[in-house]
Design a binder for these strands. Structure first.
Lengths: 218, 218
DNA sequence: GTGCTTATGTGAATTCGTTTACAATCAAGG
DNA sequence: CCTTGATTGTAAACGAATTCACATAAGCAC
């Protein structure tokens, strides 16, 4: 879909959902217009970077005025494909997986965990926050039925690669990987790593070696 | 501590814990030497980048040979200050916070959640996986007693900024922020954001707009 | 209309990070 | 001790991202 748009820098693409969220909150608070300076203050991104980011999509604002909130909102909704709900599978319903099912990315979000998988028979057949938990052996069938192409991976790290291999085989297109394993997948599959120990470790390293300055995040 | 080392690029610093973890696993599997090519395969970072990263610390390897695992291990342990345990506070013991307490970054890690805080009276006074949960009103006293300077923030987003203000007042030096709020803190305090909805959203954006290519993470 | 103020959009400069490519060096084996 | 093969460490090239700085255009007040 929309493969003919100009290629957006990856750094920009990562900030789009952040912008979108704040624009939503502006909109629901009734604000009509906003400047890159205000946005900057709220999302903690330099205002020039915001203007540059927006400019990749053409001229979204007006000189001397700023940006119209409604227009931005509509634009980002379209760009981020927010009218279509993305079904997500959760693979591994341990502590972390459970937290995600309960949270379920509900607010201001077009993503929804629709099914969980686990190998633990005591969990299989239950429902958590309305999400049915199936056995991992049923993945193929259920993933294809529900047209799921994104998975959140929260299995023990020893199983990460084999489970990822399965997911790939069943047609997954994106994996949000919370295990420490660095997955090997075909390059048609997009993997984002969130490695909690490493985030904590690197935070501490930065604290000890970089007295000041703002941190990025991942 | 060790403020006189050469300044390491931030991108490099973020990879250090990743290297360390893999070197540990090499060591415990009895491997004596390792090349940048092998490391590259395992951690999925280009081998030239690894050599460049290591070179910021001087010559850690030998030409034609590679790196001595024991030497690397010792070096990284020292550099990442792994002999000293870092006490961490968990603020907000909801679903996500609970997952972290149970996980507790135990393996191969010098960080340890030693205390949790919550406003919910039914949680206060309990112990989760050996970690005592106190009321947020006791933060000041307990944080200072235990010399805690890192916190994991998993409170509802409306409380994120006020709680962060408290933490700053009680002398925190680093915050791992899992709330969607972009915190305002003095620049002596390091904040890393992990915004789960945004990670999921941006994964989906990348899937739809960048057919191939390897994703970064964070 | 006219002029003042504001804030965008972007060329250019800069900073940061990655990758190429190869000379220098070492281990190992005969 | 010499040769071969392997692998580092880094200079230089490249590429990505950020930031500066300002011409340009729009709103707004009078």
């Amino acid at each position: 879909m929309s493969q003919n748009e100009p290629k957006i820098p990856q750094a920009t693409a990562k900030r789009l959902p952040l912008y979108y969220r704040f624009i939503q909150s502006l909109h629901s608070s009734g604000k009509q217009r906003v400047s890159s300076a205000e946005l900057s203050e709220a999302v903690k991104v330099d205002s020039a970077t915001i203007r540059r980011d927006f400019s990749y999509f053409g001229a979204l604002g007006k000189k001397g005025y700023g940006y119209n909130v409604q227009y931005l909102l509509d634009f980002f909704r379209k760009t981020l494909n927010q009218d279509e709900i993305t079904n997500v599978a959760l693979v591994g319903v341990g502590h972390l997986g459970t937290a995600f099912v309960n949270y379920n990315f509900l607010k201001n979000n077009n993503t929804h965990i629709v099914v969980g998988f686990d190998a633990d028979e005591t969990k299989v057949g239950t429902t958590m926050s309305g999400v049915p938990i199936h056995h991992v052996d049923e993945m193929e069938q259920i993933m294809k039925q529900n047209k799921i192409d994104v998975a959140i991976l929260t299995v023990p790290s020893a199983y990460a690669q084999p489970v990822a291999d399965d997911l790939v085989r069943f047609g997954i297109k994106g994996i949000l990987n919370f295990t420490p394993a660095r997955l090997t997948v075909p390059d048609t599959v997009r993997v984002h790593h969130i490695d909690l120990s490493i985030e904590l470790q690197s935070l501490i390293y930065f604290m000890q070696h970089y007295p000041s300055a703002e941190g990025v995040h991942q």
